[in-house]
């Protein structure tokens, strides 16, 4: 009896949301064609792909490509570097972006605020080719501005760009430098939704600025922060191909080579598309675990979860 009513309830719910499903129709068809057909084609991860035989006609080879990747000489190092960069960027750049957004929101100097808000996102448009030129001008061991200063102070020049100790910091800091303002935009948008009367109430209760940020501002944008973090975790094994590819060189391979640069050299340049796809799926499995796990955590603590 109870089951029947549950079913009826469901049917009633579905009926009630008829127009919602109608709204969904076009995006859904889009998803099937443009997101799920490629996933179907992704079966070449398990096949020896021959162009003339097509996706369906190619021969199954099981987990061969996955084994190639996992057994490859540098696998552990690739994984370590990839995680180092993506977590590094997550724990370094993201808080900076949030702080920047809040600082812009809280600043009492309209000119400073507006200038920063207008300029901060501009470096996003400088491609890594240009950024490399700037980094070279700053950091080159021979005539970089930083090393010239070091020499002036009597120090020994440092080969920042080709030194395995310095390189990871260069990657993470230059990423923050270039992308911080851009990442802050979404948090600024979120801050705009805060109800100002909350602040007035806080003032009446005698809260100071720190407390205001702690108890009103941050909690108000928490849902967005959570979503951004969760989504970033889902693609944790994407550590920024374009940046690394432009910045790295042979002496720093041991700390610079990431999964994507490996795939690029091994897979795409050598017609091993099955392998490239297999690595994509591998990254997806890890991402899925992280996203599901952290989503669960978020739910347990009563946050706004992803699903």
């Amino acid at each position: 009896m109870a089951e029947r009513t549950a079913k009826q309830q469901l049917l009633r719910d579905i009926k009630r949301h008829k127009s919602v499903y109608a709204l969904l129709a076009i995006p859904l068809i889009y998803y099937i064609i443009f997101k799920y057909v490629p996933i179907f084609n992704g079966q070449i991860a398990f096949k020896k792909y021959m162009a003339l035989d097509g996706v369906l006609g190619s021969q199954w080879i099981g987990f061969e490509h996955f084994k190639t990747f996992i057994n490859s000489y540098y696998f552990v190092e690739l994984l370590r570097n990839t995680l180092m960069y993506s977590f590094g960027k997550l724990v370094f750049s993201l808080p900076l972006a949030i702080i920047l957004a809040i600082a812009i929101y809280e600043s009492n100097r309209p000119i400073l605020r507006k200038t920063v808000q207008t300029l901060a996102y501009l470096p996003h448009f400088l491609s890594w080719v240009i950024m490399y030129g700037i980094l070279l001008a700053l950091l080159a061991p021979g005539d970089g501005i930083v090393n010239d200063t070091i020499k002036l102070l009597g120090g020994k020049p440092i080969d920042f760009l080709t030194n395995t100790d310095a390189f990871p910091w260069i990657v993470i800091l230059s990423d923050a430098w270039k992308e911080m303002g851009w990442s802050a935009i979404i948090f600024i948008a979120a801050l705009m939704g805060i109800d100002p009367s909350l602040f007035e109430a806080a003032l009446v209760e005698g809260a100071n600025s720190w407390q205001r940020v702690r108890y009103i501002t941050l909690p108000s944008i928490r849902p967005v922060i959570v979503i951004v973090v969760l989504l970033r975790l889902g693609t944790i094994l994407d550590a920024g191909f374009n940046q690394i590819f432009m910045l790295y060189s042979t002496p720093v391979y041991s700390v610079a080579d990431i999964i994507d640069t490996w795939v690029y050299r091994q897979g795409l340049l050598e017609f091993q598309f099955g392998l490239a796809t297999a690595v994509g799926l591998f990254k997806g499995v890890i991402g899925m675990f992280l996203i599901l796990g952290s989503n669960r955590l978020v739910k347990r603590f009563g946050g706004n979860s992803l699903f």
């Binding site: 996933i39 996706v55 598309f273 490239a276 799926l281 992803l306 699903f307």
Partner: peptide, 26 residues
């Protein structure tokens, strides 16, 4: 109803990036 499944449907292709060739074929 079915929101959970819809969310899943949206997340899966985001996480599983099958790369250049499967999309190129499409």
């Amino acid at each position: 109803p079915g929101r959970r499944y819809l969310n899943m449907l949206v997340i899966v292709p985001y996480v599983f990036n099958v790369g250049m060739i499967p999309t190129y074929l499409l």
